[in-house]
Design a binder for these strands. Structure first.
Lengths: 343, 343
DNA sequence: TCGATTATTGCATACGTATGCAAAAAGTCC
DNA sequence: GGACTTTTTGCATACGTATGCAATAATCGA
């Protein structure tokens, strides 16, 4: 347990205290905002600390205060640029309050649960689940320990878990109307995974609205939120006897795959032969190569809401779960036919 | 410091010990691989632990052992899919050995240093720097504390810091040869930031090889590793009196911007009017929309090497810095003219 | 200048786990 | 069965910081 090898032990509060000629508690207080320390001694302490290159030991601090300033983030689809954006936003905004992200990135296929149990070991201040395959049981388990949990873009039947989501129903039904107004003949929906609640919600709203408009059978397929998965189901859809000429994909990322397959492998003209609409409005969607019509879902707003919920749950632990929805809008670009009577 | 509010205190080893009728040390040993515990008592303890829902407290464990099982990762360009891939790979591979990532994602413009000082507070087992604007001074400072540091894809004059890199020189000179063989008239290089060592190395190798081949003046611009930055300099290059007809971008991500601007804003035919070559071979490069000729730099191999170095530095703290290079290859696609005499 | 109030400081202990050491228990060998 | 080796266990303490409490120093009011 003694200092090892060459690496000299990092200086502690006691070291600083000795140098500054005060007690260890005084040093602790000097680094605790709002603690009772004389200005003069604080200066003395800070000077000594600087001299020694002292940095507080967060692990020890966490042990004593039970607050780690760490937020765990579970995420499966990092290759989807939308979630890369979410991570980025989250990281920057948490840093503003001195917090950091403990990342649990998992491949879409692997189950995330085992690793997530570790979360509890790190005494994280909160847990954010997004685009993850983690089970609901796990969420319940974490919640039982009192750790605030927020799901971003995840539907859940669990009443106790806070959720931040995009405008799933509104967007999907607007997209249904837009495509319908574009006089398409056959509609398809490419969802994420079969288990995904968010995907199901979008599917229901899309199919439901079309049905209201008189369209009875809408093709439904699942691209598992991956590029390859979406490419595969697109191939299948486009080789049907009656292939769709309007496809709504549950994410931009999958829509890119659909566009790619349609253009490259089926030589389809977009949007003349096929209209494709995505969801998220990731930066790449606006690029010429894709020029994807989509529905925006601002990552920044989702993240703001999530952090807000976390903060309120930390402030008032008893607080019941909250659900928030951020709004977006249909972004018109070139991948979907525009109705004649609309601009 | 007592248990707060409603949230019941998490069970500790002492709680488990009491229930199992053993000492706290016994419980600790039951959870320490290789420790001396009788099979029977271990079973008894694990049973009690399960019953209580006990999870070891990593913060306390870290305090006692000085190993956190946390690896800090500083990264600025998360929106670049190549680095998203790096993060993903890193996360999965570290998890195999029970480690996790503490993420420091920073926007390319903001300086990362202040946040990075926090790294030291968390007693991370290692620090990985990649695609970050963190200063060299900072790296030195971290290194002084004895934390193993590995840079991925970052050139550094500092002798003490380990580095894992792609085949910068070889790739750049091969690309120079390939473009030269394609009978281009005017060559340009779009690098990352001016400060980036990696970018400079690629520039030198590219420009140097071309010079050897008799091409004297090569245009050099900087896209700052961002999409918008690359788009801007591409615009500038293409409006020159003698615009380039061959551009080598220091990353696929920037190459996408170049392609976008060239096709959309300048109506250029690729590769007839303009050849574009990237670097990284991210998944999107192979997609029809881009079809980018590029040089592969396998994220998985970079990550493997980085972890390997970290492990060896942890095992032998005195070990001197290592430098590794992973290899890649030129990936021929449609964005660059192919020489007549080559397949 | 003195008593009362307030601000500052140090002492002692807690947070949860790991581990050296010695005691106890269990095997081993003849 | 006894002496000896090996395994298992508990005790005590360490890791670095935070904080309640009491002691001390500083400040204030008249």
């Amino acid at each position: 347990m003694r200092a090892k090898d060459g690496a000299k032990r990092a200086p502690t509060e006691s070291d600083v205290a000795k140098l500054a000629g005060v007690s260890q508690s005084a040093v602790s207080r000097a680094f605790t905002p709002g603690a009772s320390v004389a200005e003069s001694t604080r200066d003395k302490i800070l000077k000594a600390a600087r001299e020694l290159g002292y940095h507080p030991n967060m692990m020890a601090r966490t042990l004593a205060t039970n607050r780690s300033n760490i937020v765990a983030l579970a995420i499966s689809y990092l290759e989807n640029p939308f979630y890369a954006q979410v991570v980025r936003e989250l990281s920057e905004k948490l840093r503003e309050t001195g917090r950091h992200i403990l990342l649990f990135a998992t491949s879409p296929d692997g189950k995330a649960d085992p690793a997530l149990e570790d979360v509890l070991s790190y005494k994280v201040d909160a847990l954010i689940l997004t685009a993850t395959t983690a089970s609901h049981e796990l969420a319940v388990q974490c919640q039982a320990t009192g750790v605030p949990i927020v799901q971003i873009n995840r539907e859940s039947k669990l009443p106790g878990i806070s959720t931040v989501r995009g405008p799933n129903e509104l967007a999907s039904s607007e997209i249904a109307e837009f495509l319908f107004a574009g006089q398409h003949k056959r509609y398809a929906f490419i969802g994420g995974t079969v288990e995904s609640g968010t995907s199901k919600v979008r599917e229901n709203a899309f199919v439901g609205r079309l049905r209201e408009l008189g369209v009875e059978d809408v093709l439904v397929a699942h691209g598992d939120y991956t590029f390859e998965g979406a490419a595969t189901v697109t191939r299948r859809l486009l080789t049907l006897d009656q292939p769709p000429d309007a496809i709504f994909c549950a994410s931009d990322y999958m829509a890119f795959a659909t566009l790619d397959v349609a253009k490259r492998e089926f030589n389809l003209k977009v949007p003349d032969d096929l209209s494709v609409i995505g969801f998220d409005n990731v930066p790449a969607a606006s690029r010429f190569a894709w020029d994807l019509t989509t529905y925006s879902q601002p990552a920044g707003a989702l993240v703001d809401a999530a952090i807000d919920i976390i903060d309120s749950m930390i402030a008032r632990p008893g607080r019941r779960a909250q659900r928030r929805e951020v709004s977006g809008e249909l972004i018109l670009r070139g991948s979907a036919k525009r109705p004649k009577n609309r601009s």
